[in-house]
Amino acid sequence: MAQLLIFTFIGIMWILILAGGGVLVTLVSKISVSGYGEPMDFFIASIIKAAIALVLVVFWVVVLSKLKNKIFQKQIKA
């Protein structure tokens, strides 16, 4: 049973990785900034994208942490 839960956790991580990539490609990569001049537009857009990517990573880790506690609750307490 414990090992089955680990397989489940790996499966969930796999889906989260693919979904996270989807969010980055479809939403975050499309962000563009205009009105500050050519190098600044690119620079500001890059900073915004990097910040969103970092927030997404933190969110991903928090979700995994919650899932870990939920899935392995019994094992961790044992």
């Binding site: 693919l18 990539g21 980055l24 490609v25 479809t26 990569s29 890059s46 994208k49 990097a50």
Partner: peptide
């Protein structure tokens, strides 16, 4: 490269 969705250009990152 993100599977299923394509690539993201992130030269500095």
């Amino acid at each position: 490269a993100f599977p299923l969705f394509g690539e993201v250009k992130i030269p500095v990152l």
